[in-house]
Nucleic acid binder design. Structure first.
Lengths: 343, 343
DNA sequence: CTGTTAGCGCGTTCAG
DNA sequence: CTGAACGCGCTAACAG
């Protein structure tokens, strides 16, 4: 059996509660007593029993990270993998553990959020979703557990109550497009994904940049893929004429952009001379491809950090705080695929 | 406050322990009572308080996954990311949660394994390490917590006591090499990594295959990289003459192999006509490169599954089981980079 | 079959 | 400043 506060108490010749207080930095303890208790606890390698602690404090010191179920997609997984690492790295600063979970248990079908919260296994949640589920949102709100949406743009009306951290994709879309415009391009093919959500924002940014520079927006110049490399590749094969008719393309996710580039190269096009390419996300993967992809950088570390910090704020707040919308600005990373270095 | 068994007891008009027993499928309960209790619990959306349960049973229903600290490396992260997904997918079948942790807390320097075990936050561990640390191994052994090493070849003498699941890298090295030999290659450049551990096994397999086919083993034909794409790329640039002097190369990790291929292509070589390439791991990433990489497949799903299953066995065993060494066989995936399709 | 009782290890009054 | 006593929610004897 592991050591308990009682054991330490015995060794130190004090009561169990004195041990508890000493180890919890209670101000009610004399310096001398505390010192002695701490030393003994240290010597014995004592650690609190998390369950007992959790039972009496209602705090577990672990937080749940909820991932979308399509995490199995390779491209998504790539991104989420490094996001998780980032979260871990930050949360360990507060000595918080991290339970990773999918949105629902594939076997029992039970919603992970509800399960984790009701069983009191976590103190708070970081939810990494692109889609929101009204019923779990309602559950979260009435269960008064702190939670932060990471990477999620909630477009219903009731945004005020919730906390979220996300990239300003409108600006991202604007930045990528404007960069190409400034390089002299007028016909810019947009390769996007998903009808709604983040990608719609990116497209709105694209459109706004065009309009701002007095370029007519042509709906025929917007293509849709499913975010994968393969999909980007196939789009080029299927719409070769369209790609022929433009001088630049702005692809709304890097892996897809790489697929586009490879297909373009395979069909004999030179990048950026024949066609300029700009991507979105700035994933490490792009380092493997030539020419190096110019892209809109999503500040992942910042997103993760801000989400964690916000969650920690919520955790330590006496009463529930108001919702906070934290918008992070993307930046443009100019490399070679846009041709800027030739200009 | 959340519902407790006491609340359910009140609603059902029975005692708290009857509720506990009913919900835990105790055989001591009449069908009728159980039915009623279950129904009420269901209606109320009752869930056990994990802390209270853990306190009295000494079981948390969560297991810890320990990742190496170099998880931040992109290439490693790629692999570990999908491994984690796999683990999650399997463990959720037993309703086990999963705490992910690095080997040690970067801030406090505290060993995560010790912390998680002593605080009783986990019932068991899956340790994904390439290096072993004698002190934590000792700790694990005397703390009698179930643990399984995943992907780790412990080469000290005391293997009997521990449980581990790993790929037979000797065979992997052998397979890749023999495939090239059978295609007629005699001078096969080996691009490996790390002096010790897994990679040494792969090299031993390489060497054994050569010897088996009466080909003199030439130590000058073994190069070392650091497993990254970049490193593979640079190796080609630095040792162009060596690559010129062989007809095939066996690269011991896929990302590095891709780097090698890209550099080879950049220097005007045709793959597989001028030089055949075989990789190792079979990561999804290879799908993005031409020609498609022939490689030694590491059965990741199988590794994850076996590790979880073994851990579950250990968890449910009455007394501690003997250590078990589970070796998984890799397979060769023939695609294009080896030239087999041209033969 | 069911209820009563006693812990599990810790935080926290309440007395001194 | 410290100790005794209680309760967090649950499981597990122990009686009936």
């Amino acid at each position: 059996m592991a050591l308990t506060t009682k054991d330490i108490a015995l060794l130190a010749g004090v009561s169990q509660s004195t041990v508890s207080r000493s180890l919890n930095n209670s101000p009610l303890i004399s310096v001398e007593t505390r010192r002695r208790v701490l030393q003994i606890a240290e010597e014995q390698g004592f650690e609190f029993n998390a369950n007992a602690r959790g039972l009496s404090t209602n705090r577990t010191n672990t937080i749940g990270v909820i991932y979308p179920d399509d995490y199995l997609d390779h491209d998504v997984s790539l991104y989420l993998g490094s996001l998780l690492t980032q979260l871990r790295k930050i949360l360990e600063q507060w000595d918080l553990d991290l339970i990773v979970s999918f949105k629902e248990n594939r076997k029992t079908g039970i919603d992970s959020i509800k399960r984790l919260v009701m069983r009191k296994k976590v103190d708070g949640l970081i939810i990494v979703h692109s889609q929101s589920d009204t019923s779990t949102l309602e559950f979260l709100e009435k269960s008064d557990i702190p939670f932060v949406f990471l990477h999620f743009y909630h477009n219903s009306g009731k945004v005020e109550g919730i906390n979220q951290v996300y990239t300003d994709h409108f600006t991202g879309g604007y930045l990528g497009t404007e960069h190409l415009i400034k390089l002299g391009h007028r016909r810019i093919l947009c390769v996007s994904a998903d009808a709604e959500g983040e990608y719609a924002q990116r497209r709105r940014g694209y459109q706004a940049a065009l309009e701002h520079h007095k370029i007519a927006w042509d709906p025929a110049l917007v293509l849709f893929g499913d975010r994968t490399f393969q999909s980007g590749y196939n789009l080029v094969l299927a719409h070769g004429d369209l790609f022929d008719s433009v001088t630049a393309t702005f692809v709304h996710t890097d892996t897809m952009a790489l697929g586009v580039m490879e297909a373009l190269k395979a069909t004999g096009k030179r990048i950026p001379q024949d066609i300029a390419v700009v991507g979105y996300d700035d994933v490490e993967l792009t380092a493997y491809f030539q020419p190096r992809l110019t892209t809109v950088h999503q500040p992942r570390e910042e997103l993760a950090t801000l989400a964690c910090e916000r969650l920690v704020q919520l955790l330590s707040a006496k009463r529930s705080l108001r919702g906070k919308q934290i918008k992070v600005q993307p930046t443009l990373v100019v490399r070679q695929s846009c041709g800027a270095h030739l200009a």
